[in-house]
Design a protein around this nucleic acid. Sequence first.
DNA 1: GAAAAATGCTTAAACGTTTAACTATTTTGA
DNA 2: TCAAAATAGTTAAACGTTTAAGCATTTTTC
Lengths: 350, 350
Amino acid sequence: MLISVKRLTEIMCATIKDVAEEAKVSIATVSLVVNNHGRISQETRKKVLKAIKKLNYLPSRSARRLVSRKTGNIGFILTEEHFLHTEPFYTRIFLGTEFEARAIDHYVLLATISSSYKKGDALPRFISERNVDGIIVAGKVPDALTESISRYKIPVVFIDFSPVIGDYPNVITDNLKGGLLATDHLIQNGHKNIAFVGGEISHPSITERLRGYKLALERAHLNSDGELVMTNDEFLSRQNGYNSAKKLFELQKNITAIFAANDATAFGVMQYLKDNNHKIPDDVSVVGFDDVEADLLIDPPLTTVKVPKLEMGIEAVQLLLTMIKSSNGTAKKIVIPVELKVRGSTKSIN
Amino acid sequence: MLISVKRLTEIMCATIKDVAEEAKVSIATVSLVVNNHGRISQETRKKVLKAIKKLNYLPSRSARRLVSRKTGNIGFILTEEHFLHTEPFYTRIFLGTEFEARAIDHYVLLATISSSYKKGDALPRFISERNVDGIIVAGKVPDALTESISRYKIPVVFIDFSPVIGDYPNVITDNLKGGLLATDHLIQNGHKNIAFVGGEISHPSITERLRGYKLALERAHLNSDGELVMTNDEFLSRQNGYNSAKKLFELQKNITAIFAANDATAFGVMQYLKDNNHKIPDDVSVVGFDDVEADLLIDPPLTTVKVPKLEMGIEAVQLLLTMIKSSNGTAKKIVIPVELKVRGSTKSIN
DNA sequence: GAAAAATGCTTAAACGTTTAACTATTTTGA
DNA sequence: TCAAAATAGTTAAACGTTTAAGCATTTTTC
């Protein structure tokens, strides 16, 4: 009589069948133990767990997916520009999603798309191949992308962005509050001529930050008619901040404080100020937004509105998971609170 | 008589069975057509392809993987520090792997590990769960990680790093050549007191760059005994470059050119020079290494050694794939050529 | 003390592919 | 002319799980 014995080398993985044999139970029992389903006696459970440990068993993802019709993957979409962005903003958000995905035993598939995505362009493969259970879109993306994605009936959560058309679940920062905090801080420090500098003005987040700025000025009965507002719709970059500051100072000389729409812009503004012999914060105070921690050699350290980036990623994954589970279409929105980090770039002039 | 008809909604995916029914062939035939195997007549092939198109069929990855015992995934490991790094160096390499992986119909799973990984720490999940067919490790990682990974018999390719112990396949830049190019450029421009500034000196790539620097000096019969070499083993950062430049200039006043071990370091050096009223390139020329294209507002633009980052990622994936296919253990090494990009930060003093 | 309910485990089908082995037909070769 | 070879397709097992349904036991209920 010939018995075929499967030799388990270190390279091969033990299967549920091996565990069942080892524990002398059926494979169904093993499955029930592994998934904490069904009614299994303490005794049997122990036997099975022991066998699992002995054989170093791990369930096969492929097999699980095949039967559960879930992939266990989450797609993360980012424009290439944002991914390669100098300041680690979206990369930190990604790290947050990675972190939370691990906790719920999922994988995050990262895909970048062109910032100039237009109708008909190829979507990330994981969508057409249905290799994800849900999608996270971080940062501003073209409407065409949103439209293309929504044709596939896959749950989507947006982070730090909300498409203008349609109603989607998203996780955003409290931009209005941030704008208020930043501007109030400057007002409380005696500043009266406070400028706003920013790009991507069509981005809802930036609009909100500007709204916070204006609201704070109004409340303080300061001039808020916008003559100190220097905006455009270009990418929020250092270069952009530099150029905007230049324009601003060529028009207005008596500015004592600047609220920049984000840190990158603020760094550009600071560079302009340094190059033109305005001392920070003695001559001009600068406030940013985002709080991108990095080796940027910024002097003085920037007062800014801290955005909890990791947390945003975590929240997005949690939100997405409930959507995947319930296939609930209600567009829940999560607003993450912000806080002001006062550092060396602002100063009281009272 | 009751016929159960599977209704294909837009949400459900057509399976190979649906295609087979539509084309009135067996599912094996469909599989053979899809995979270009076997002997199938033109006629049948056409029928099948038509049905595939009509039903918008895409093979299920889960099912494929289950039977092929391959995951179709590639793991990409990076230290958290490198991932969040200001200059988009490793992120660009990642993009290269993503690009090539797409071409060979694979997915890249990104995982970050702590820079202080030590024996016993958890490896990225995709390893223990065997959710990848091969692994790419980018940048310098602790030896403990290399050791832990190699216990799993999974193909590994290193990018921009080569573990000291063991013999692994890798893709590296021609660092020696780069060091030579950079230093020769300065020598040809009449510089005699050329300093080398860099961190991570235990990193083989940096050692090679330094070797290139020394070799070039020797060839030109210039002093190469190392008194103008300022190195440490800390992370290559702006801050590091700034501090090193400071130390250097406190000791030596007549330096006219600096070769920095990478661009980040060079930016730090430039910042120090600016802060201390050394004009670039009039007083001091600066050369970097890497060529990280980004919105960094660097003035003047940095002369540097260009490293083809995307290409490195591409090469690594190709190398990894041949290893996966052949399970060939020979540690192939690929050296990517570099070129000097002359920009505004260097000047002839002849 | 018998019917009903609870407990503990097993059987077997299903998920969607790939592929070795097989069958049936047509073509080739001497 | 007929065996051998080539061609074109099919059958069925296998991959490793999950889970509904089923089947013995044992316990509860009245």
